[in-house]
């Protein structure tokens, strides 16, 4: 029997998944569909630049600048783009304003559509089957699991994202923050509060 190199303990091994990814990428690069440097640039951007700090800036501006808040209500894509945050897939942004009578909450029941330009990539739970299934059916129970208990009379509205429509929740501004700067306010806007599974000013 010839020596089987495949079992040689000092050689490398790629997992089945890594093999599939390398196979796909190397073919796409060879055929000119993607440039490895551009792929790395995208990864770098999503790992370091784009994240919920952007959405927090949008929210803080909406809290302090009524004209901006009004613009967000009328044309969220344009208002958000004015801060330099634009989408890659040509999606429309919609800003959902929470009020004392209405709480908005966002889900993507199909897959994991999410407002990348302002929140980055979604957290693990957002992509999970239980959240996707239950957010629509029993939003109050899901909210309670996130530690959010709403008054009886407050309406909960659940928005199902699509490839074309992405939602950003504008949480209510916490009491006692009068006179705070935009920067100070942005620091208390949590990611979950902009998905609607949290409230601003509360720890996540």
């Amino acid at each position: 029997m010839p020596h089987d190199d495949h079992d040689h303990p000092h050689n490398s091994e790629l997992s089945p998944i890594e093999l599939r990814v390398r196979a796909l990428e190397s073919i796409l690069v060879e055929k000119g569909y993607v440039d490895p440097a551009a792929v790395d640039a995208i990864i770098q951007t999503y790992e370091t630049e784009i994240g919920p700090h952007r959405g927090a800036r949008v929210v803080a501006k909406a809290w302090t600048d009524p004209a901006f808040a009004d613009w967000l209500k009328r044309d969220a894509s344009a208002a958000i783009a004015s801060l330099g945050y634009t989408g890659r897939q040509g999606e429309h942004m919609v800003a959902l304003f929470n009020t004392p009578y209405l709480h908005n909450m966002v889900v993507c029941t199909l897959c994991s559509c999410y407002p990348w330009p302002v929140l980055g990539l979604p957290p693990v739970w957002y992509k999970s089957p239980p959240y996707r299934a239950r957010a629509v059916k029993e939003p109050r129970t899901v909210l309670a699991e996130f530690g959010v208990t709403l008054p009886e009379g407050k309406e909960v509205r659940v928005w199902d994202s699509t490839a074309e429509m992405r939602y950003l929740v504008i949480p209510e501004r916490p009491a006692g923050t009068g006179g705070w700067s935009e920067e100070q306010l942005a620091a208390i806007v949590t990611r979950d509060s902009m998905i609607g599974t949290g409230v601003a000013g509360a720890p996540t």
Binding site: V21, L28, Y33, D35, V39, D40, I42, I43
Partner: peptide
């Protein structure tokens, strides 16, 4: 990250 970025580029 690779599969995500490939999808965005395509």
């Amino acid at each position: 990250a690779q599969v995500f970025a490939l999808t965005v580029k395509l």
